[in-house]
Write a protein that binds this DNA or RNA. Structure first.
Length: 490
RNA sequence: GGUCACGUGGCCGAGUGGCUAGGCAGAGGUCUGCAAAACCUCGUACAGCGGUUCGAAUCCGCUCGUGACCUCCA
């Protein structure tokens, strides 16, 4: 069966049949985090969206090279030359070395990704480790005449570029509109045109992160790293580039300009943009201060949270919404997700010890087809989940004997859940209940031993022994002491 | 101000010209020693106003509302 995957391409504003440039290989680049603070839920949603893309492409049999960068050269905090490197600023605040900040938050980022079962990329390049590549790219852009040097900085010449290529095509902007809205910023004297953007910046004396270059000491421009690293690892032309909606302009449009400026090719064929997570209708963002950390999420210790939610509940909650739509966070919705997720998992779990019962009276092939169809339609996870609920209902009915199922279809049903719930959607099996079960053990044992104790008191030794023997079989040794019963789990 | 999205039943969210989305909550029922779970049934929702059409939540126009981007941001 050939997959007919369709992906919405921001560039063409329509769903397109996915045809890799070099099948079975697929190049996927995703804009990663800037590691100067803790990631929040909004960030998680974005990386989760592309985790699904990565998982599904892999599931279809493609050999995916998934590149997701770590931005460890801070973009500028303030406008233009007065700006201070984000990382350097944080370093001063916390009195750490810049790279110490980078390491700290990179570690934190990885922890969060693991928590939500978001797979690591094939390559996770850092900007600071690719300064040479970025300098080379600046040189190429200069050579082709799409940039100029000015006072130790190099700027991309947007007007010149626009003569031959439409600048702002991705985000649907044109130069004249942009001009009409350009703010007059301080320290832009060195630019020929307000629209121009830096691809190499001269480092002021106070700037901590700096590297030597043909134009003096400085650091790479805002948008350059993604162009340099995607070109290096995926080529001048590759399949998919993803990122958050908020990166469309200027970041991604600048990337395209840089790619063409340096290589003559625009880079990715398909641009995918994940939408925002909102809180009370507003984008969750570092600058809004309405985000929360995973610790707060799990503990529920945050003013926006009425209770704690497990990572898988959150994963399920997010996947119930299409990646291209905004998703509004609310406790009510999260609680609904928690229940729904548990019900789905219970149904899947119930399939474990089931015996086949004659001929199937349901259409497994139709379910499988519906799953594939959902994912092939631009990774429509909400529809996939609705199909999984249908399958779960059938699973429960088989369990309760209201439906029959052949051995073949039972296996098929199990692998349907394995494929789509676990491999593609990346849910973790029974994560919650396992933790809970361990917590419960002391209480349960106490209860059981008390029941046994009262049996002994009433000289019902048959029951007392039955309990002890049964526990022994489960690997729990009960020892009666003068102080009472003790137990040990082998 | 410019550009672009979006507005679906109590809540969250698919769909995008005619055929049940789904989940959560709610109502009734079956089952059950009780309770829970499970199963069955139940909502004539598509911001408003016009238009196109045999037929529109789905296409077009206008109005209202919300948001994103235009500055670092997933």
């Amino acid at each position: 069966m050939t997959a007919k995957l369709k992906i919405y391409n921001t560039l063409t504003r329509q769903k397109e049949n996915f045809e890799p440039i070099n099948p079975p290989h697929v190049g996927l680049y995703v804009c990663g985090p800037t590691v100067y603070s803790d990631v929040h839920l909004g960030n998680v949603r974005s990386f989760l969206s592309f985790d699904i893309v990565y998982r599904y492409l892999s599931f279809l049999g493609y050999k995916v090279r998934y590149v997701r960068n770590i931005t460890d050269v801070g973009h500028l905090v303030d406008d233009a030359d007065s700006g201070e490197d984000k990382i350097a600023k944080k370093a001063r605040l916390e009195q750490l070395e810049p790279m110490e900040v980078v390491q700290k938050y990179t570690n934190g980022f990885h922890d969060v990704m693991r928590l939500f079962n978001i797979l690591p990329p094939s390559i996770e390049p850092t900007a600071t480790a690719h300064i040479i590549e970025q300098i080379e790219m600046v040189k190429k852009i200069l050579d082709k005449g799409f940039a100029y040097e000015s006072d130790g900085s190099v700027y991309f010449d947007v007007r010149k570029f626009n003569e031959s290529h439409p600048y702002g095509k991705l985000s649907g902007r044109n130069i004249d509109d942009l001009m009409a809205n350009t703010r007059s910023l301080d320290g832009q004297d060195h630019k020929r045109d307000p629209l121009d953007f830096a691809i190499w910046k001269r480092a002021e004396s106070s700037h901590i992160m700096r590297w030597p270059s043909p134009w003096g000491e400085g650091f790479p421009g805002w948008h350059l790293e993604c162009s340099a690293m995607s070109t290096k690892y995926l080529g001048a032309e590759f399949d998919i580039h993803g990122g958050g909606m908020d990166l469309k302009f200027p970041h991604h449009d600048c990337e395209i300009a840089q790619n063409i400026g340096a290589t003559g090719k625009s880079g990715p064929r398909i641009w995918m943009h994940g939408n925002m997570l909102t809180v009370n209708g507003r984008k969750m963002a570092k600058s809004e201060g309405n985000g929360f950390t995973p610790e707060e999420l799990i503990s529920g210790n945050h003013k926006l949270l009425e209770q704690g939610y497990s990572p898988m509940t959150v994963r399920f909650f997010m996947l119930q919404c299409h990646y291209a739509s905004t998703l509004d966070f609310s406790n009510e919705a999260l609680r609904a997700a928690e229940k729904g997720y548990k019900r789905l998992m219970d149904a899947i779990d119930g399939l474990e010890g089931l015996e086949p019962s004659g001929k199937s009276d349901f259409d497994l092939a139709a379910l499988q087809a519906a799953c594939a169809e959902a994912m092939n339609d631009d990774f429509n996870t909400p529809i996939l989940i609705s199909v999984l609920f249908e399958a779960a209902k059938i699973a429960r009915q088989i369990q309760s004997g209201d439906r029959s199922c052949s051995e073949e279809d039972l296996t098929g049903l199990r692998s349907l859940f394995d494929d789509y719930a676990f491999t593609v959607l990346g849910f973790r099996k029974l994560e919650e209940s396992k933790g809970k079960e361990e917590e419960l053990t002391p209480g349960l044992m106490d209860l059981i031993l008390k029941l046994r104790h009262s049996a002994k008191l009433s000289k019902d030794y048959a029951t007392a022994d039955r309990i002890r023997n049964a526990l022994q079989e489960m690997g729990i040794t009960v020892k009666d002491t003068p102080q009472g019963s003790e137990y040990k789990i082998d």
